[in-house]
C-alpha cells in the first residue's frame, strides 16, 4: 500500500506542482495588481465566497450532475444501436450518416432556446440538449470500432456459418469496445457542456443557473466556484470512464501503452 501511495505521488508530482504553481500565480496576480474580485477573484476569494453557501452549491451540483448522467445514459442508449445500424450495411450508412452530420452542423447553443420552448423548461428538454451536444463523437467512434474487426476474423465467422447477429455481437462488438470507450470519454466531457448550456437557457437550479444568477448580481467569486466544480465534474467523469474501461476492456492496447509509460 505504502509503495502504491509513493508510486501515485511520484507519478502525479508534475501535475500537482503545476496546479499549485498556477493557483499561486493567480493569487499573486490578483493581490499584486489589486484586481477587484468582481472582475477576477483570487482563489482565496473564491474559497471564502463558496464555503458559507456550500449546501446551496451542493444542491445545484446534484441537479447538474443528474442532467449530465441522464444525458450520458441517453447518449449511450441511442448511439450504440445507431452505430450498429450504420455499421450493418452500406445502405444504412448512406441513409443515416448525412442526417447525423446535419444535426452536428446545427449549433446546439442556438437550438437550445428553441427546444426549450417546444419541449418546455423541464428536465426532459435539458437531457435532450445534453444528449444532442454529446452523442455524435460516440456514434462516430463506435462505427469506426465496429468496422475495425480484422477481415480474416469476419471470414472465420462466415466459414463457421455464423449468423449476422453472431458476427455483430460475438466478433464486431467486443472489437469495438476500446473505440466505444474512446468516444465515451469525449462524450462525458461534452455532457457537462451540454447540461450547462441547457441550464443557461431554461432552469431554476443547477450550476449553469447559479453562474447566471450570480453574475446578474456581480457575485463573481461564486460563479467562479461553480466553474471550478464543473471542471472537477468533467475530470471525475473522464476518470470514471477510464476506470470502467480498465475493468471491462483489459486487453485494450490504448491502456496497455499507458501502463507501459508508467513503468
Amino acid at each position: 500500500m505504502l509503495t502504491n501511495a509513493a508510486d501515485w505521488g511520484r507519478r502525479n508530482l508534475p501535475v500537482i506542482v503545476s496546479t499549485l504553481t498556477f493557483l499561486l500565480g493567480w493569487e499573486l496576480l490578483c493581490r499584486g495588481f489589486g484586481i477587484r474580485p468582481f472582475l477576477l477573484p483570487s482563489p482565496s476569494a473564491i474559497w471564502t465566497a463558496v464555503v458559507p453557501v456550500w449546501p446551496n452549491i451542493a444542491m445545484h451540483t446534484v441537479t447538474t450532475l443528474r442532467t449530465v448522467l441522464l444525458g450520458l445514459a441517453a447518449s449511450i442508449a441511442i448511439s450504440l444501436p445507431l452505430a450498429m445500424l450504420i455499421a450493418s450495411s452500406r445502405t444504412m450508412s448512406a441513409a443515416i450518416y448525412p442526417l447525423l452530420v446535419l444535426t452536428q452542423s446545427v449549433p446546439k447553443v442556438a437550438l437550445a432556446p428553441i427546444l426549450l420552448v417546444a419541449l418546455g423548461a423541464n428536465e426532459f428538454s435539458r437531457v435532450i440538449i445534453t444528449f444532442l451536444v454529446a452523442f455524435f463523437p460516440l456514434v462516430v467512434s463506435s462505427v469506426a470500432g465496429l468496422l475495425a474487426a480484422p477481415p480474416e476474423l469476419i471470414e472465420l465467422g462466415r466459414s463457421c456459418r455464423a449468423t449476422r447477429v453472431q458476427e455483430l455481437l460475438r466478433i464486431r462488438l467486443p472489437y469495438a469496445l476500446p473505440f466505444v470507450f474512446g468516444g465515451l470519454r469525449v462524450a462525458a466531457a461534452l455532457c457537462v457542456v451540454g447540461a450547462v448550456v441547457a441550464e443557461f437557457v431554461g432552469a431554476d437550479s443547477g450550476l449553469g443557473y447559479l453562474i447566471q444568477t450570480s453574475m446578474a448580481f456581480f457575485r463573481t467569486p461564486v460563479a467562479f466556484g461553480a466553474v471550478v466544480i464543473l471542471a472537477i465534474m468533467g475530470i471525475a467523469l473522464f476518470q470514471l470512464v477510464e476506470v470502467i474501461e480498465r475493468l471491462l476492456v483489459p486487453w485494450s492496447s490504448n491502456l496497455d501503452s499507458n501502463s507501459n509509460d508508467n513503468n
Partner: peptide
Amino acid sequence: TAMVFQSPTLLPWMNVERNVAFPLSLS
C-alpha cells in the same frame, strides 16, 4: 472446411482455450 490465415487473428478478449473453442461456440 476450416481456415487458417497468415495472421493468427485471435480474439484478444478470450484466453487461448476459449479462442480454440470459439468456432464450436458459434454453432
